[in-house]
Design a binder for these strands. Structure first.
Lengths: 164, 164
DNA sequence: GCCGATCATTTGAGGCCTCATCTATTGAGG
DNA sequence: CCTCAATAGATGAGGCCTCAAATGATCGGC
């Protein structure tokens, strides 16, 4: 039997009353992200036999047709370089991306989508977007906009607190 | 698309203008969570040589002094049972939790914090909360409240969309 | 030309996580 | 009782991820 998760019991709804407001905000944020991520992962897996990290990497390349260096991918995906190496290795093996040596810097590699990779990504992206739209459709356009703006502030807050 | 500006570079800020609003909301949510999570992980690692999953598991046990069964932990942490088995094994080995057999069901185990585990957790929790407070301190109390409420709606939206 | 600092990437150990599968136990009906 | 489906947990393969260390290339200054 599969170990999948379905009940409305989670980290956040279990926080005791004594927990403080900032902590509960953080736990709720984490819960929302985990829920959405689990849905998106399940969908990618079920319909395309693809993982979210692979999809994210390909998404970056689709936006940058001239390709990206490993380090650029690492920054954009917010993961370590070693990690990008591994995922790229797999995608190369599957023929979805290429690693090319740029003429000017022999330390670097430029990763690009192959035509097959691009086709594969576009097919997934369409379904993926519809899925995300559905997940957030319980909020009105105004609420989505407010949430979007508040998250922008949160992002700034976290970044500046972290860099102290 | 010039790459020469030294702006914060991540998944979300790189979404092209053509991407739709729901998708950008999702990417921004993911970015915020990733940023906060990375800070929190780094802090737990640096100050206490502890990981976030271990901390989360101990937090659940601290709120439930009578202990929790593996399956309960799995639901609350939103991870699979196999995963809980592994993390629990380590904490048992480190003397921070115990696995006890309940009298009524020989299939199950009840996991509890040891006194040492509780002391260790409480020490971390104090520092952890201060850290989280700092990360969200760039938002006003009102904004935090609004964000909290919008995330509640998002959680409901995601849950109901997923269960269709 | 050479040195050292820095940079891009890879490697390897180890932790987290999922899925699929397995074992043991429980509990409801015959 | 006995069977059988459901349940609690463990296990193993495989992917993701981080950190730390290593390799090789580049660049500025002498």
């Amino acid at each position: 039997m599969s170990d999948t998760i379905s009940e409305p019991v989670d980290r956040e709804s279990r926080a005791s009353r004594a927990d403080h407001e900032a902590l509960r905000l953080w736990l709720r944020l984490l819960t929302c992200t985990s829920l959405m991520e689990a849905s998106v992962r399940a969908e990618l897996r079920r319909d395309f036999d693809c993982t979210l990290p692979r999809f994210d990497l390909m998404a970056q390349l689709e936006r940058n047709p001239d390709g990206l260096r490993m380090g650029e991918l690492s920054k954009r995906l917010m993961v370590t370089g070693g990690n990008v190496t591994g995922i790229t290795d797999q995608l190369v093996k599957e023929g979805l991306v290429t690693r090319a040596a740029p003429p000017d810097d022999r330390r670097a590699f430029v990763v690009r989508l192959t035509p097959a990779g691009r086709r594969s990504f576009l097919r997934m992206a369409e379904s993926h977007e519809a899925w995300v739209v559905k997940l957030v459709s319980g909020l009105s356009a105004l609420e989505r906009r407010q949430l979007f703006d508040l998250l922008a502030k949160l992002k700034k807050s976290v970044t500046s607190a972290r860099d102290d």
